[in-house]
Nucleic acid binder design. Sequence first.
DNA 1: CGGTAAGCGAGACGGTACGTCTGGTCTTTGA
DNA 2: TCAAAGACCAGACGTACCGTCTCGCTTACCG
Lengths: 208, 208, 208, 208
Amino acid sequence: MSSTTAKSPDASRRSERSRKAILQASMELVGEVGYPKLTIEAIAARAGVGKQTIYRWWSSKAAVLLDAFTEVVHDENAEGSAGGLPDTGDIEADLKYVLRATADEFSDASFEAPYRALAVAAAADPELADQFVSRLREPGVRVYTERLRAGQEAGQIDPDLDLDLAVELLLGPFQQRWLNRTGPLTHEFTDGLVELAMRALAPRGAPR
Amino acid sequence: MSSTTAKSPDASRRSERSRKAILQASMELVGEVGYPKLTIEAIAARAGVGKQTIYRWWSSKAAVLLDAFTEVVHDENAEGSAGGLPDTGDIEADLKYVLRATADEFSDASFEAPYRALAVAAAADPELADQFVSRLREPGVRVYTERLRAGQEAGQIDPDLDLDLAVELLLGPFQQRWLNRTGPLTHEFTDGLVELAMRALAPRGAPR
Amino acid sequence: MSSTTAKSPDASRRSERSRKAILQASMELVGEVGYPKLTIEAIAARAGVGKQTIYRWWSSKAAVLLDAFTEVVHDENAEGSAGGLPDTGDIEADLKYVLRATADEFSDASFEAPYRALAVAAAADPELADQFVSRLREPGVRVYTERLRAGQEAGQIDPDLDLDLAVELLLGPFQQRWLNRTGPLTHEFTDGLVELAMRALAPRGAPR
Amino acid sequence: MSSTTAKSPDASRRSERSRKAILQASMELVGEVGYPKLTIEAIAARAGVGKQTIYRWWSSKAAVLLDAFTEVVHDENAEGSAGGLPDTGDIEADLKYVLRATADEFSDASFEAPYRALAVAAAADPELADQFVSRLREPGVRVYTERLRAGQEAGQIDPDLDLDLAVELLLGPFQQRWLNRTGPLTHEFTDGLVELAMRALAPRGAPR
DNA sequence: CGGTAAGCGAGACGGTACGTCTGGTCTTTGA
DNA sequence: TCAAAGACCAGACGTACCGTCTCGCTTACCG
């Protein structure tokens, strides 16, 4: 996988060994010291690599981390699952199930540290935000959009809805609570959120 | 207003002149160079103040900025408005009106730069997050909670709702879109958001 | 004893308690941390005194130390001895005796540290050098001049000699060796120095 | 010439350009502002060099200045003269000639300022004193020792003398007067000093 | 004998420099 | 011939002191 944040040199000569060492070192270090104290120098030292080798291929420590995280995510997804949301026919149950899983993932420190680091860096840096959204956030969001579309076809979701807005209604509160740490990401919370959101998403004539 | 992020020295001897100069310089500079390039040295230089005077009273540049921003917000609020949301009797209209105003505020660069800086810093630093939420976010959120409670009493909002969750449903998508820059904060967006959220908040038996 | 390095305030109101505490603290601290790391702040803290009280009465840390040292020297001299060199009639023996004693004094750390500090500061600062020479060095040198004058009258010293130069010949090598640490100040050294110098000071026709 | 005060990095990668700029800037600045007000920051700024480059290769501003001064002295010596004292056969005349020249040198401000700075720093710091004595003082002293040895062989100096002590007798008073500023370094003084010292150094049976 | 003006301990202030750390660039060297 | 190693310029970090200043408070003197 080639980096979309790369600068320009001849990628064919690139050392795969160095690339991997750098990505792995970034992930380790961000977990150990946190993003603000993560330095290019430390990454280079841990990876046994010259600083220039990092500057040659990435534009910032955020770009390194984004590549590192992307690689991990892809590896995990490749391992097995189809990636889409389950479709049992009961959309509310399906959403609850997946949002619970997402909450668990966001409570796992080894996932949380680098992901939060990237989310924060992206919030501060519009250029990085593009990358972050399109490579990490979009794929995660799309499956919700698709499940909702299936729900529309099954008559469980109002057919007139703007699905993007619908997904924002569902995930915005979740992300917000996580980013601001305004409360714990419990299953009670996610279930309640799904129930409340479904009241907005259900067809208007639906039984209540 | 005394800083809750202060360290410990004898506050009675504190120079008001210096305190104000520092807060003003912070606000100016964060607008000019952005939060990541904001330095204590530059604040001190701009304010005509020794660096130690900053370190004596604040623990980080984020703490300075938080005080600076808080002061601005309080000054503005003190200038006139009662601070609460309007209550015309039509809750959806009221919410649309205020969310439009909020969107406009968040589109104003002179407000956006320091506020985003703080939001980002708070997302990365739990200690700061406490301060940020309780001093800037809470007050803004509370007025929504209160308006919704009035709506409950007026029969426009489902009386069984958890109002905190209800406010999250309304503001989460807004904040998320702003932080991630996933889309523009237009009036169309805020109106649509209010309409959709109201479908979840309205009493179950309400006419649709 | 009033300080000749004082600035100008009304000395009659001066706190004797503070003055003594400052001088004592200086002497202690210069022994503990050395002259370059001796700070006014530390002296004030140790003495339980405001910094301004030091700045009010002294112009520099060297001036403080000079007063402190002068006071110690005077106290010791006042304790007993007449202060002059012994005169047994044998000038070479007398000089050897006194130079041995001087060597011992300069080998005593509690004397050496502050005295060297002053000598060094004086070498760098002409203004202080005046004070240092006239208050500490001159008195010590004068006794040699007088003993040599007595030797002239007794016919043991060449009557045509410039006595100031003669004393420089005797003490210069001693001071030089001490300041530069080019060798130890042993009794062998001082005895040899006296013997050699006496060859220059003796009357030309003297038996050899 | 490699610095004996260096710390430890790989000297082969050292920038000669930076090294020279630093030494030159030190010499200029010590003349302009004096040793106590000489700062590493100012040296770095004048030399167009990062501070770290100074800290990497020297342990203190005194070490920098010592290297700078050593280099100047070596350059001058390399320019021409054999470096030894003249030997006209008349040792007293030779000594007078050289001591006059030395006095003139010590009266030259551009030489005096840095040399005094080093002498003072060395007097305060034993570690630096070693360097100072062995690199600047020793070479200057040795030529006197050698000229006196020649004088011994020529029968003008007492063959039983300890030559090191003899040189101290000659130069100690000179150095002392210079360091303490107890008098001007005139030719009258140096001539008188040589004459007096020679009375001690001449063979005992010599005609007087 | 009570007011007033100094010296006092305390410590905040505007500054300068410290020595360290990291960012990003440039240069040398070994595989 | 490229990448590791790391020296380089630059400049912010947070700390230590500088010398000045302002606070209340004692503590003398003087009207």
